[in-house]
Design a binder for these strands. Sequence first.
DNA 1: TTAGTAATACGAAACAATTCGTAAATAAAA
DNA 2: TTTTATTTACGAATTGTTTCGTATTACTAA
Lengths: 127, 127
Amino acid sequence: MSSDNLTKPTESELEILQILWEKGNCTVREVHEILTQNKEAGYTTTLKIMQIMHEKGLVKRDTSSKTHIYSALASQQKTQQHLVSRLIDNAFSGSAARLVMQALGNHTSSKDEIEEIKKYLNELDNK
Amino acid sequence: MSSDNLTKPTESELEILQILWEKGNCTVREVHEILTQNKEAGYTTTLKIMQIMHEKGLVKRDTSSKTHIYSALASQQKTQQHLVSRLIDNAFSGSAARLVMQALGNHTSSKDEIEEIKKYLNELDNK
DNA sequence: TTAGTAATACGAAACAATTCGTAAATAAAA
DNA sequence: TTTTATTTACGAATTGTTTCGTATTACTAA
């Protein structure tokens, strides 16, 4: 499958994708500024990874001006779906329920969030 | 932190850990047989990975007889917890609820599983 | 005892991801 | 125009993972 690349970003690539998903269009500089709020990294490192992401088809870029503008090509929905499925298979013996309970148990979720999930479960029932 | 290794197994290591979590004690041969039900791999490859896991402290082994007996040292619970947290931070902007819904929406979960999760959510409410 | 089988140990090759130095191109400022 | 700063491009070093060939050791059966 040629779309394999689209769903298997590395961790560094994921960090960048998250920024692009949220911001839409970004220069390397903008992405780099956000990245380095949390961790150390050289500018050319960020640049290189984004160039590789372009080669892989994870992002597209507008090169009409000297400073290129990047945006995500990999869909947030599909990427998340793929990562979750892999984790379920990989570490939870294929049981989505076990992953869900692990996720809810240890990440402090607000009452609102829990209500939302209940609503969601009821909808699943009615199918 | 020295326990970092315990919670960041590679994918190959996770495959093996899953087997050890389920079976308890295993020889390399046993693990290898199970692994190769799903994918190709040479015996010495499986062996090598298990040896590295031993160096890293992910597994322990009994070497009193020629055929070594391996078992998991990394706790299933802690490893899963760590992986889920990372995924939530990494790909779901920190929202456990979003991950949960993604997980439930795309993995076909049985009615029993869904009931179990509902029960679990109600318990969470009562805390 | 000898031949064959199955195990471990070890090292190195192959591959992928990350990091960064340096050069070249472009644009902006002096 | 000349200098300075910013950007891209490229290549190479580093690190980590996976894979496997080969040697050695121990056990089993002929």
